[in-house]
Every structure is written in C-alpha cells, then in structure tokens.
Simulated assay, not measured.
Amino acid sequence: MTAATHEVFARYHACWEARDPDRIASLHTPDSVFHLHSGEDPVRGRAAIREAVAGMFALVPDLEFTQVSLRTGDDFWVARFTLGGTSASGGVIAVDLADFVLVEDGAVKEKHSYVDGEAMRAALAPAVPDPAPTH
C-alpha cells in the first residue's frame, strides 16, 4: 500500500509544481480538508481548496518546491520542502514547509501544511520603496 500512497504523492506534487489549482483540487476527496497552519482557517471541499490554492499562486506566481524529505505509509505521507519564488509584491520567498497528508481511496483526505508564518508574511508584505534622497 505504501507504493500506492507514494504514487498519489507523485501525481499530487506534480500538480503543485505545475501550479494547477484545478488538478490539485481534483486529487482531493469531495469532503477534503486543506489547512495552511500559518494563521489561516482550514478550507473544506474541492471548490474551496481550489480557491485557496489559486490564491496562493496569485501571491507567489513562480512558487517553487525543493523536496527535502518524504516518508510514506499506508494512508499518509509526510514531506519537507523549501519554498522559493518571488511574491507578487516583490518579496523573496525562502521558507521551510512541512506537509502531513492523509490519503483515502487514492485521494487526499486531509492536507496540513506547516510553514514559518512570520517569514511568509514578511515575504508577502508590500515592498517598501526606498525613501527619496534628501539634499
């Protein structure tokens, strides 16, 4: 069963790398929960998950994932990533992420993502222009 879970991870991760909210949402169960644990409320259901993911990609259009580690079990995976990219406001993203995902019948039942919320908020903050030189 671990091989099957690893295969679900591979398909799911490919959708994230492709930045495709529709495909990501389609790999969740209809009643799935997605929770970004950085001050965000959990969202439930494919439509809400698609909207949340699309919002993330709008904030960081070139979001990249560098996999650090992966552990799979019969019905879960735990993965660590480094997130990279540039926020829509110009901030550089360099944040650690840990995912805990429960799998049911070949789809994502729950996805809990843990990220350094303070570092992410700082990177997403509007860029502050340099003050005009004074003479």
Rank of each mutant, 00 (worst) to 15 (best):
V92C: 15
P126R: 07
A10R: 11
C15D: 11
A122L: 10
D62C: 07
M120W: 11
D41Y: 03
A119T: 01
D99I: 04
S32Q: 01
L124G: 00
G39A: 13
P131Q: 04
Y114A: 01
E7R: 09
L36R: 11
L97I: 03
R44L: 11
S32D: 05
G106K: 06
V8T: 14
P42E: 01
R19P: 08
A98I: 01
V128K: 14
Q67H: 06
A47P: 00
L59C: 11
A119S: 06
K109M: 06
V95M: 03
R71V: 15
C15S: 11
A122R: 07
A79Q: 00
D130A: 05
Y12C: 10
G45Q: 14
A58M: 01
L27T: 03
T72M: 06
R19I: 07
A52P: 03
I24Y: 05
S38Y: 13
A4N: 06
F81L: 07
P131E: 02
E64R: 03
K109A: 14
K109R: 01
A3Q: 05
V8I: 06
K109P: 09
E17V: 08
R71W: 15
F100T: 04
G85E: 07
V128E: 14
D105G: 06
E17T: 15
T86E: 15
R19Y: 07
S38N: 14
V101W: 13
G84F: 12
Y114M: 07
